[in-house]
Simulated assay, not measured.
Amino acid sequence: MLSIAVAVFSAFVSLDISSRLKYAERVSRIRWVSAGALSLGLGIWAMHFIGMLAFHLEADVSYHIGIVIASIIPAIISSGFAFYIVSRQTARPRDLVISAVFISIGIVSMHYVGMEAMQMNAVLTYDPVMWLLSAVVAFIASLVGLYLLFSLPDVSRFHWRRLVCSLLIGLAVSGMHYIGMGAAEFTPLATPQPLTGFSMDSTLLAVWIGGSVTTLFVLMLISLRNEK
Score class of each variant (00 low, 15 high):
residue 186 F to V: 06
residue 62 S to F: 08
residue 38 L to S: 02
residue 176 M to W: 11
residue 187 T to E: 09
residue 167 L to A: 11
residue 166 S to G: 04
residue 76 I to D: 00
residue 38 L to Y: 13
residue 14 S to I: 13
residue 192 P to K: 12
residue 59 A to Y: 14
residue 173 V to I: 11
residue 15 L to M: 08
residue 107 I to Y: 12
residue 83 F to S: 00
residue 216 L to C: 12
residue 42 L to I: 12
residue 190 A to V: 10
residue 140 I to Q: 09
residue 10 S to T: 06
residue 85 I to L: 07
residue 15 L to K: 06
residue 179 I to R: 02
residue 190 A to P: 02
residue 214 T to F: 11
residue 137 V to I: 10
residue 157 R to T: 06
residue 87 S to R: 15
residue 35 A to Q: 15
residue 126 Y to N: 02
residue 215 T to R: 09
residue 151 S to Q: 11
residue 221 L to I: 03
residue 61 V to M: 08
residue 128 P to T: 08
residue 105 I to L: 12
residue 158 F to D: 12
residue 27 V to Q: 10
residue 114 G to L: 01
residue 105 I to K: 06
residue 37 A to R: 05
residue 145 G to D: 01
residue 200 M to T: 15
residue 27 V to C: 02
residue 98 I to V: 10
residue 110 M to L: 01
residue 99 S to R: 05
residue 39 S to M: 04
residue 171 L to Y: 15
residue 171 L to V: 14
residue 8 V to H: 09
residue 121 N to F: 03
residue 153 P to H: 04
residue 205 L to H: 03
residue 186 F to S: 02
residue 35 A to L: 15
residue 19 S to D: 11
residue 7 A to C: 09
residue 65 I to C: 02
residue 83 F to D: 06
residue 41 G to F: 11
residue 217 F to I: 08
residue 200 M to K: 09
residue 107 I to F: 09
residue 103 I to K: 02
residue 160 W to Y: 05
residue 191 T to G: 00
residue 182 G to Y: 12
residue 154 D to Q: 08
residue 37 A to D: 06
residue 82 A to L: 07
residue 6 V to L: 02
residue 71 S to N: 05
residue 120 M to N: 12
residue 56 H to W: 05
residue 171 L to D: 11
residue 198 F to M: 01
residue 49 F to R: 02
residue 57 L to T: 10
residue 205 L to A: 05
residue 121 N to Y: 05
residue 23 Y to D: 13
residue 157 R to L: 01
residue 75 A to E: 02
residue 192 P to T: 00
residue 130 M to H: 13
residue 84 Y to G: 10
residue 216 L to I: 13
residue 143 L to I: 08
residue 176 M to C: 03
residue 163 L to D: 13
residue 154 D to H: 09
residue 218 V to D: 04
residue 109 S to C: 04
residue 207 V to K: 11
residue 61 V to H: 07
residue 176 M to I: 00
residue 205 L to M: 07
residue 124 L to C: 05
residue 142 S to F: 00
residue 50 I to F: 01
residue 27 V to D: 05
residue 9 F to S: 03
residue 41 G to M: 09
residue 137 V to Y: 09
residue 202 S to F: 14
residue 128 P to H: 06
residue 55 F to T: 14
residue 108 V to E: 04
residue 5 A to Y: 01
residue 129 V to Q: 09
residue 178 Y to W: 10
residue 5 A to D: 12
residue 158 F to C: 03
residue 224 L to Y: 10
residue 63 Y to A: 00
residue 20 R to Y: 03
residue 36 G to S: 08
residue 159 H to K: 10
residue 82 A to Q: 10
residue 73 I to E: 11
residue 212 S to W: 15
residue 226 N to G: 04
residue 26 R to T: 08
residue 92 R to Q: 14
residue 128 P to Q: 06
residue 139 F to H: 10
residue 36 G to K: 12
residue 146 L to W: 15
residue 212 S to Y: 15
residue 29 R to W: 15
residue 167 L to I: 14
residue 40 L to F: 13
residue 103 I to V: 13
residue 124 L to D: 14
residue 88 R to A: 01
residue 33 V to K: 02
residue 200 M to P: 08
residue 148 L to F: 13
